[in-house]
């Protein structure tokens, strides 16, 4: 598509699409108890949950970067493989995207829980994972990983490998090629993936409450606090949801355009 004018039909449908995404959020804003908002948010539990959410989502993003970037490199390399292993690899990486998060949480319990395949040995050694903040990070990383892998894969796939080859023929060391050619080429893609991964981790609910549990200060993140507040005080639940929304939108707005997947400067 060129940058010319949109046809009126496309513009109208796009407007409907935008309204579809925006109006539920508008509902949230309209129903928010604005006058009581400061009092609700200043309360210890909300700030505690916010702090826990930010910390665990940052850690989960770190885990995803360490594990996900090599995974993305493998995914790019798999283009040369036979169809079956290539599609299998892509399917495995996609699973957390399509799996209901609660089922993801159950799967993590069956592996890492106190009676899990691996977890029972860890528990015997005194490293029980469920009910810890570490379990929150694991649940978030499991669910958010595909966002990072696919964003980085996109960046790696579209980067021009000939620049690296040219640098090498011009006498650059492997480190110099990596530092001055590869990183500037794929860095924005990695940053975009990390931001998407962070916001997904921040909103994670189902896998977290199933695998990690819900205890204030330890495992009760903002989405869980919001869900529980809904049982007694919908106003407070909306207030907590707004905090989550503000943080996520702020992070996405800070992201430069060219980091966004699909945007070419």
């Amino acid at each position: 598509m060129s940058r010319g004018r949109l046809s009126p039909v496309v513009a109208v449908v796009a407007a409907i699409g935008l309204a579809f995404l925006l109006l539920p959020l508008a509902g949230l804003l309209v129903r928010a108890p604005w006058s009581e908002l400061p009092g609700m948010l200043a309360g210890g539990p909300v700030l505690e949950a916010l702090g826990l959410s930010l910390t665990t989502a940052l850690c989960a993003t770190g885990v995803c970067l360490v594990l996900g970037v090599p995974l993305a490199m493998l995914l790019v390399r798999s283009a040369a493989w036979a169809a079956v292993p290539r599609r299998l690899l892509r399917a495995v990486i996609t699973v957390p995207l399509v799996l209901p998060p609660v089922i993801g949480g159950i799967a993590l319990l069956l592996l890492l829980g106190r009676r899990g395949i691996l977890g029972q040995f860890l528990a015997q050694a005194g490293f029980g994972i469920p009910y810890t903040s570490g379990a929150v990070v694991i649940a978030q990383a499991f669910v958010a990983m595909p966002f990072l892998v696919f964003a980085v894969e996109g960046a790696l796939g579209s980067s021009d490998r000939r620049s690296e080859a040219a640098a090498a023929t011009l006498g650059a060391s492997r480190w110099q090629v990596f530092r001055f050619v590869t990183v500037p080429l794929v860095g924005p893609g990695i940053a975009a993936g990390a931001v998407l991964c962070f916001t997904r981790a921040l909103g994670e609910f189902g896998a977290t409450i199933t695998f990690a549990g819900s205890l204030p200060g330890v495992t009760r993140t903002l989405p869980i606090a919001s869900y529980l507040a809904m049982q007694t005080d919908p106003g407070e639940a909306i207030a907590i949801a707004l905090v989550l929304l503000v943080v996520s939108v702020a992070v996405l707005l800070l992201m430069r355009d060219r980091w966004m997947p699909g945007v070419r400067s």
């Binding site: 469920p130 009910y131 409450i209 199933t210 990690a212 549990g213 819900s214 205890l215 204030p216 495992t219 009760r220 869980i224 869900y227 529980l228 049982q231």
Partner: peptide, 9 residues
């Protein structure tokens, strides 16, 4: 160790 969202959990 955890305060769940419903009795089935």
């Amino acid at each position: 160790d955890t305060l769940e969202q419903d009795v089935k959990a």
